[in-house]
Computed example of a mutant assay.
Amino acid sequence: MPSDIAPITSTQNPLVKKLRQLHQTKGRKQQGQLLLEGTHLVEVALAQGKRFNHGCFTAVWQEKNPALVDRLVAQSAQSYLVSGEVLAKMASTVNPDGVVATLAMDQFWRSPPPNPQLGLVLEHLQDPGNLGTILRTAAATGVEGIWLTADCADPTSPKVLRSSAGSSLLLPQQQLESLPPLLEKFQAQGLQLIATVPQGSQTLWEIDFQRPTIVIFGSEGQGLSAPVLAMTTHQVAIPQAPAVESLNVAIAVGVMLYEARRQQWSVSTPG
Rank of each mutant, 00 (worst) to 15 (best):
S3H: 12
A6P: 00
A6L: 14
Q12A: 14
N13F: 10
V16T: 11
K18W: 00
L19E: 04
L41G: 11
E43D: 15
Q48N: 12
V60A: 15
W61K: 03
Q62I: 00
L72W: 02
V73G: 08
S76G: 07
S76W: 03
A77H: 13
A77E: 13
L81F: 04
L87H: 03
M90K: 05
M90F: 01
A91Y: 06
A91C: 10
T93M: 13
V94T: 12
T102R: 09
F108G: 08
P113W: 03
H124C: 01
G129R: 11
R136P: 08
T141A: 14
I146M: 11
T149R: 08
A150Q: 14
D151L: 05
D154A: 12
L161D: 00
S164G: 09
G166F: 10
S167D: 09
S167A: 15
L170H: 14
L171Q: 05
P172S: 07
P172V: 04
Q173M: 15
K185P: 00
G190I: 03
L191H: 14
Q192K: 04
I194Q: 02
A195E: 02
T196F: 04
V197E: 01
Q202I: 00
L204D: 02
F209K: 06
Q210C: 12
V215P: 00
I216G: 05
P227F: 09
L229R: 12
L229G: 08
A230Y: 02
M231W: 01
Q240N: 11
V244F: 15
N248D: 04
Y258E: 07
R261H: 03
V267Q: 14
V267C: 12
S268Q: 15
